[in-house]
């Protein structure tokens, strides 16, 4: 097991290295930082001086080492727009993103799994057909347009819920959370539902196909033959077996949620890291964009590593594979 973990870790490190190279090259291709930073009255000599100051006169590999070295020391540079260390900006906004992502995932699981099991067991009933049609519709409506509809209906027409911002927050462990205030929850409702709709559809489908596979296994027939009550079969035999794929996919989807929150956060003006990324792209705030890309890459590499290790723990066959 330790050997397996070490091997996966080594692979993850290589992955992180390659991604950092890609981001670095991307930066290098994108244009000339000197032109972007230079004032209009800069002479040619000033530009050369600036290039030397930024270290752009050095060979590429040396520049990459400086770039990677700074990152390893947690130095992502200073935002052009906010004039503050980038890492600070990102960490400050992370809780806002995490809390809607977690709320959305909770909503998705608690609605999706029961719906999926129901439509898997009664796959030809009318409600089950309706559910499967609704999940197709849910999949088909682009996330951002769902968001607009939610705003139009609940904020503009019905005026029930606020359409933008984070509302009041309350501190816990020194971090401000909207989850802990009524006003904050009201502000969270629409963005969380927006993120959750896709989750609900996905969990429903997963649970449904899982149920349909498990339903015809012999141990299910045996459980029925033993005369166990329906409730108990569903809880002890069905749910447990369909939960394995659901748990692993849900783990992988944490990253997906954070990625998709860029869209949701932008539409609802939710001050998380996704909105920070888009604002920074629009304002050509390059240090922030680079830092976001690097951090999100590291996060994905880490999540993949954890999922792989979990798989190996759950399924011994993987460990011994060459």
């Amino acid at each position: 097991m330790l050997i397996y973990i070490a091997k996966r870790m080594w692979q993850s490190l290589i992955l992180a290295f390659i991604m950092s190279l890609i981001v670095f090259m991307g930066m290098f291709v994108v244009g000339d930082p000197v032109e972007m930073l230079a004032d209009e009255d800069f002479t040619e000599q000033d530009k050369i001086d600036l290039a030397i100051e930024l270290g752009l006169d050095k060979p590429l590999y040396e520049q990459y080492f400086t770039f990677a070295g700074n990152i390893l020391q947690g130095d992502f540079g200073v935002s052009y727009v906010h004039n503050r260390p980038v890492l600070e900006l990102i960490i400050e906004r992370l809780p806002a993103t995490l809390e809607i992502a977690l709320l959305a995932m909770f909503i998705g699981l608690s609605i999706g799994i029961p719906m999926g099991i129901y439509s898997g067991i009664k796959s030809s009933s009318k409600p089950s057909r309706l559910i499967s049609f609704l999940t197709t519709v849910g999949y088909s409506i682009p996330n951002f347009w769902q968001a607009l509809l939610l705003i139009l209906v609940f904020a503009v027409f019905l005026k029930w819920l606020p359409a933008s911002g984070r509302g009041d927050t309350n501190p816990l462990f020194g971090i401000e959370w909207s989850l802990l205030s009524i006003d904050g929850l009201r502000h969270m409702a629409l963005p969380a539902i927006n993120l959750a709709i896709y989750k609900i559809c996905m969990q429903t489908r997963l649970a449904k196909s899982g149920t349909q596979e498990v339903l015809y296994q012999e141990y299910m027939t045996f459980a029925r033959a033993k005369g166990i009550s329906k409730q108990r079969i569903i809880r002890r035999h069905l749910l447990r077996n369909i939960l394995i794929p659901i748990v692993t996919i849900t783990g992988l989807e944490v990253g997906g949620l954070i990625a998709f929150s860029t869209v949701t956060e932008t539409v609802f003006a939710w001050p998380g890291i996704g909105k920070l990324l888009l604002d920074s792209i629009h304002m050509v705030d390059r240090p922030v964009v680079v830092a976001y890309l690097i951090l999100i890459t590291l996060m994905f590499v880490f999540i993949n590593f954890v999922v792989d290790v979990l798989y190996a723990i759950l399924d011994p066959r993987i460990r011994y594979q060459k």
């Binding site: 930066m27 990253g255 792209i281």
Partner: peptide
Amino acid sequence: DLKVSFPGILLALMLLAMFG
């Protein structure tokens, strides 16, 4: 493997942020 470990929308955002 590298590609599928990233959500498509994020990858596209990364590329468009880098290349315009």
